[in-house]
Simulated scan of single mutants.
Amino acid sequence: MAQPQREIRAAYADSTITVYQAYAPEIGLPAVQEGRFPAVWKRDRMTWIKPSFLWMMYRCGWGAKEGQETVLAVEISRAGFEWALRHACLSSYVRGVHPDRAAWQCQLKRAPARVQWDPERDLHLQPLPYRSLQLGLCGEAARRYADEWTVAIRDVTPLAHEIHALVNSGDLGAAARLLPQERSYPIGDELLAHLRG
């Protein structure tokens, strides 16, 4: 069966979904120790969460990019994640989704969340012909993410390094077996209709 062009794929449980972020150790390590984002984490800035592990690996270079050396798996409530989607706006104007560019700009200014669909990645971090969700949170959404929705924070940097080493050695089968099990996230079309782009 053909892969949908835009679909949320994620590791999730009955009440939580796992998203990924990467930070410098001075933010990432205290977040893991405390199970919540520390005071130095800026709640007034846009923060991007990614349900795709491999897209996060592409973004942070397997945890090797400066300022992104600590890769976090952040378990958040599905209710919070879906609230963010319900209140999100596409990060760029799409004819047919928005009445016009001015209406989109007005919506974007008001929205506490925004959505981008970026090419999913394979184990070599090359683009695949379908897209994965990135969810940007600001204002109320960023504060809720940090202080209400977050259930647990794990350091998955060692996992990232282990998978990367297997890819480099050519053992793609072993690398694939270590990947988080992401599957289609069960969400109604009405929740994504304004975000299909």
Rank of each mutant, 00 (worst) to 15 (best):
F81A: 04
A31G: 09
L133G: 01
A141F: 04
Q181A: 10
E82A: 05
Q21A: 11
L159S: 09
E26W: 06
A160P: 00
R183H: 14
V94T: 10
E190D: 15
Q126W: 02
P127L: 01
R183C: 12
V32K: 13
Q3V: 14
M56V: 02
R6S: 02
Y20H: 09
E162R: 13
L72A: 03
T150W: 08
L108G: 05
A31F: 07
D118W: 07
D44E: 15
L128T: 12
A141W: 13
A31V: 11
A175E: 00
A79K: 14
A39W: 12
F53D: 11
R43A: 13
S132L: 09
W149T: 03
K109L: 06
K50C: 13
A22R: 00
R154P: 06
V167R: 09
A84F: 10
R6G: 02
Q21L: 10
A64Q: 03
R131K: 01
Q105C: 01
D14V: 14
C106K: 07
I163V: 12
T16L: 14
C106F: 02
F37C: 10
W62S: 11
E34V: 10
V97I: 15
A73I: 03
T150Y: 03
C138Q: 13
Q116K: 02
V32E: 03
P119H: 10
A141C: 12
L166C: 00
S15A: 14
F81K: 07
R95N: 01
G61Y: 03
E148Y: 11
T18W: 14
V19S: 05
V40R: 12
A174W: 06
I153G: 01
F37A: 08
K42A: 14
V40D: 08
A13Y: 05
G173F: 05
S52C: 15
W41E: 14
E7Q: 12
R6N: 08
A193N: 10
T18Q: 13
R86I: 12
L29I: 13
P4W: 08
H124W: 00
C138S: 11
K42R: 15
A152V: 06
S92Q: 10
R131D: 05
E190S: 15
A64G: 01
I163N: 03
L72T: 00
Q105R: 10
Q126V: 00
Y93I: 09
G136C: 02
E75L: 05
L172G: 05
P129S: 03
L159E: 07
L172P: 02
G188P: 05
V156D: 03
R144K: 09
G80F: 04
E140T: 14
R183I: 13
